[in-house]
Amino acid sequence: MNEYQTIAAGLLSSGTAAMVIGYSEGSAKRVRPVFFTRPEEASTLVFDSRCVQNIAVYLTKKEIRTEGKIAIIASLPVMRSIIQLASEHQLSEEKIIVIGITPSGEVKQFNGFDALDAYVSSTTIEIEARYREKIEQVEKMTLTERWNFWKNELSACFKCYACRAACPMCYCTRCTVEMNQPQWIPVPSHTLGNFEWHIMRAMHLAGRCVDCNACAEACPLGIPFNLLTKQMILQFKKDFGGYNPSLKGLNILSSYLPDDKENFIQ
């Protein structure tokens, strides 16, 4: 067994963890999230570049919370999500063990959030070049062109909410889109309703999205709404020196500093 499999098996056999959440081989050369409680299952854990689903999403689910202490195989985006969730008081430290796997393949076990926070803080969120180029392209468009670009992309959305379901930060038990007194967002998936939905979601993720890309990976229709959150991360870099989830720092958009730029007022 490799290192993370051995750690996972050890945590289960010693009773330190009641369940391990990770990835195993799925169908058609895909991987799928798995929930193991027996040490012998750990040998089927896999971790590679196919593991793009953000399994931190399961940590806030009622069915999982009641399982006891959870060990989770965590890529860097999953680690970032855990810190962001912890900073929003959604996770309890004593119930989570992080078996982190760094981008260079190093396996690091984190038993507390402080160590994980220190590691996450030592990394930076970088928007991939292909997305930066696309964002630049969209930003260079005239208003009409940009409107048409988004209309064309977002009108395809049929509101299956896979983006929301795949996102660890979308943990609200009642989403704004389901509030109906008043009805903030139209329910039908027409172009207006889709615009409102995706803009609202992007706004709610501002300063919270860790750029794991799980939403875009989940979208069955390949809609590039992740450009919105990626653009915001680039904007934070310009305006506030960048965003990284942290237990110590201030939340980037819900904190005020006297020297904050006010260049949005024009």
Binding site: C160, Y161, R164, A166, V187, P188, A218
Partner: peptide, 23 residues
């Protein structure tokens, strides 16, 4: 269903699913 995320992707791509909402 442990790993089910509770989205509607399966139903919306399905050729037979016919459940609907009225709004």
């Amino acid at each position: 269903s442990m790993r089910c995320l509770g989205c509607g992707a399966c139903a919306f791509v399905c050729p037979s699913c016919s459940c609907f909402d009225i709004q």
